[in-house]
Simulated assay, not measured.
Amino acid sequence: SLAEHRSFLDCYDMLMTSSGQARDGVYLIQPAESPIVVYCAMHEGGWTVVQHITVNSSVDFDRTWAEYKYGFGEVTGDHWLGNEYLHQLTRGPAYYKLGIKLVDPDAVTKMGEYDPFLVEDEASSYRLRLGLFQGTTADALTMDTENYLHDNQKFTTKDRDNDNYFQNCAKLEFQGVPGGGWWYDACAGANLNRRNVIYWQKDCNKERLCKYAWMMVRPTDRVKLIQTKDCQRDEL
């Protein structure tokens, strides 16, 4: 069949092609030239998982620029998909949104979305671009509540300092664990890549040790709305 031979842009594309039948799991997608292995959260609506961390994870997030570029860890567990793949996924022509999912110490799940979401290319140091926020988490990336604004920041790793602090934020330690790669300001109102503390303003911090965090992407609802109208027009 046609579906077996065509490549899928993302998990949502695959879910739609399967008429909503696809299950959670590991899939191959191809937003650009080369295929990427990803974990798809189909049950939640076809999200492509781009990051997952467990507090005190055995996976080391204190990695170099090159490692953050192409990712590390296992897509079925704690991992970073890779900044290059984040760029390939979100660069268009379709608009994407970012989903943040946090599980707090009381096992309560909180969700937040930024729509649209874009990661620029490596020449721009994988700069983060975020649209409007909605959700049950704090808006820790675009709201300047703690004088740290992550929107429009370049990515920083321990060997590539692009932040706005006099030291490298990725190297700053808490209880012996460095911050890891992130879109730091000077330094952070949120950081999901520090292994011992998942940090998201008031939702997750060293006083409130969250258990898990996920970052996921899918096409924006606005784009789907346009596609639906086009389909209806075709049928008329």
Rank of each mutant, 00 (worst) to 15 (best):
T156N: 11
D139A: 00
R222E: 13
K154R: 07
Y12R: 14
Y70V: 07
Y126F: 13
A170W: 12
L149E: 00
Y27D: 00
A170F: 14
A190M: 03
A123H: 05
T17R: 10
L2M: 14
P219M: 09
Y27N: 02
N162K: 04
L2I: 13
D121E: 13
D163S: 13
D163G: 02
W200N: 06
V37N: 11
C40P: 03
C204S: 09
T142H: 03
K154V: 00
A138F: 02
W200P: 01
W183M: 01
K171I: 11
F117H: 09
R6L: 13
K101W: 04
L172D: 11
G20Y: 05
M216T: 05
E4H: 09
G181W: 05
D115Q: 01
G179D: 09
D139M: 00
L172R: 14
R129F: 02
D234G: 08
V108L: 11
G176P: 12
G189A: 10
T109W: 10
G112E: 06
V119C: 14
C204H: 09
I198W: 12
M111V: 14
K154E: 10
D24L: 08
A138W: 03
N191R: 12
S34V: 09
M14W: 11
P219S: 06
D234A: 07
S125V: 02
Y70N: 13
Q88V: 03
R218E: 12
C169S: 10
C204E: 11
G99L: 15
N191M: 07
K69A: 14
K158V: 04
L118H: 15
K206Y: 07
G45H: 04
G99Q: 12
S1Y: 11
L236G: 09
D163R: 10
T228N: 10
Q232Y: 15
D151C: 00
L225S: 11
Y184Q: 11
L209T: 08
V50F: 07
T137D: 05
T142L: 03
D104I: 04
R6W: 12
D62V: 01
R63M: 14
Y184N: 06
D106A: 04
W80K: 07
A107G: 03
P116G: 12
T17I: 08
G82V: 04
Q167P: 01
V197S: 05
L225G: 05
K202G: 01
D161K: 13
N164Y: 15
W183D: 04
L130H: 07
Q232E: 15
E120H: 08
I36Q: 14
Q167G: 08
L132E: 03
